[in-house]
Structures are given as C-alpha cells and as structure tokens.
C-alpha cells in the first residue's frame, strides 16, 4: 500500500513538474509573441533594450542594441542557468521629456535586457565586445560530447 501511495504521489509530482514546465514554456512563447507592457521601468530607472539570442552548435551569441551607453559600465550576469541579464549605464540620463513625452514623469539612467538561453553555457568563458553601442556576448556551449567512430 505504502509503495503504491508513494508511486501515486510520485506520478502527481511528475505531472506537477510537467505542468509547471508547460506553463513556463507557454509564458515564454506568449511573452515573445506578444510583448505587451511598457518598454521602461521608472522604479529601476531602466529603459528596455532590444536584444537577440542566437544558438549555434558551438556557442550562444547574445546581442543587444545599447545606444547612448558608457561601454565600460556594461554588466553581463547569469540570473539563473538559463537567463542572461545585460545592464549598461547611459552617457546621460534620459527623461520622458527628452523623448517628446510630457504627460509622463520619470528619468532613465540604464538600458537593460534579459535573454533566455535554453542550452547550457560556460558563463566563465564568455567574451564581450561592444562597438557603436551594439553589444555582443559569446558563450561557449557546455556538455558537448564527441562520438568516436570506429
């Protein structure tokens, strides 16, 4: 009986995990297909930057459009094993008024973006370059196994 209960609970756990994964995946797909909401955050003084993630057989390349930034302030962090966050300080603060918007208040000092990477990467070996405000971060991929042919 006990083992049957354990088995049942275990199946439910698996189902829960499966549903959780499905929800995360759905949120991700819906989030990228219908990116609603403002492209700024007045609390964190951040403007959201445009970014791309490219996954190649050997590496993951993340790029971001970071105009008006001080290149030496660029920070690339792994928020968790699948989420990369890029932040950079802008050369000068941007107010809504600078963008021609007078019915909102707030000013922004940073550009920020996040990119989801669905493969394992070696964050310690990342290479960063930034030219003309286009940031490129290259991560080697982990867990590559070569199959030896006989």
């Amino acid at each position: 009986m006990v083992s049957e209960k354990r088995k049942k609970r275990s199946n439910l756990d698996i189902l829960d995990e499966y549903l959780e994964e499905l929800k995360t995946l759905t949120d991700k797909i819906m989030g990228s297909s219908f990116p609603e909401g403002p492209s700024w955050n007045t609390e964190t003084c951040c403007l959201h930057a445009l970014s791309n993630v490219f996954i190649t057989p050997r590496e993951v390349i993340v790029t971001a459009d970071l105009p008006n930034i001080e290149p030496e302030t660029v920070k690339v962090e792994m928020v968790d094993e699948n989420l990369i966050e890029i932040t950079a300080k802008m050369k000068k603060k941007v107010r809504f008024a600078d963008l021609g918007i007078y019915h909102r208040q707030g000013q922004f000092s940073f550009l920020r973006c996040q990119g989801r990477v669905d493969v394992a990467v070696d964050a310690e070996k990342m290479k960063i370059s930034c030219e003309e405000g286009i940031l490129e971060v290259r991560f080697p991929r982990k867990n590559r196994h070569e199959l030896k042919s006989e």
């Binding site: 492209s39 959201h48 459009d65 105009p67 941007v94 405000g133």
Partner: peptide
C-alpha cells in the same frame, strides 16, 4: 543614438 532609443 537618439533615434535608436526612440524607435525601440
């Protein structure tokens, strides 16, 4: 740079 910020 200004256009790139505005056009996001």
């Amino acid at each position: 740079e200004e256009i790139r910020l505005k056009a996001r």
